[in-house]
Design a binder for these strands. Structure first.
Length: 107
DNA sequence: GACTTGACTAGAC
DNA sequence: AGTCTAGCCAAGT
């Protein structure tokens, strides 16, 4: 797949996973950002859907919402897991929010 | 092919 | 700063 964007015939989900796998430890991206990087600026919601059912090798915890917060989901639990994993990677947080200015992954 | 369902967002009060 | 709304769109049924 190209640096950004979806190759011909590639499923949206596969592109999301490929991108999220490139996010380095200690950094995060937002749903909307992933969508924009894949050249689907209005597909943030779909990104959430893809990240919600991803393979084990995808660092899904590095994806947060536009406010740096951890989005709620139908079955809680993974919310705590996500916060714990982010803390373990020393992702800077304040009042339950990731400080995007300091750890947003660009490119 | 018509719904329904979300780990979304930006904007308006 | 909290709540609501409307737009969005990939996937699953």
């Amino acid at each position: 797949m190209s640096a950004a964007g979806i190759d011909a015939g590639m499923k949206f989900r596969a592109a999301v996973y490929a991108l999220v796998r490139r996010v380095p430890r200690g950094h995060v991206v937002t749903y909307g950002q992933v969508a924009a990087m894949l050249r689907r600026p209005r597909s943030a919601r779909a990104v959430g859907g893809a990240v919600g059912r991803c393979p084990d090798d995808v660092p899904w915890h590095r994806v947060v919402n536009a406010q740096g917060g951890i989005s709620r989901r139908r079955r809680l639990g993974s919310v705590l897991t996500q916060r714990i994993r982010l803390e373990q990677e020393n992702v800077p947080m304040r009042r339950g929010r990731v400080l995007l200015d300091r750890c947003r992954w660009e490119r």
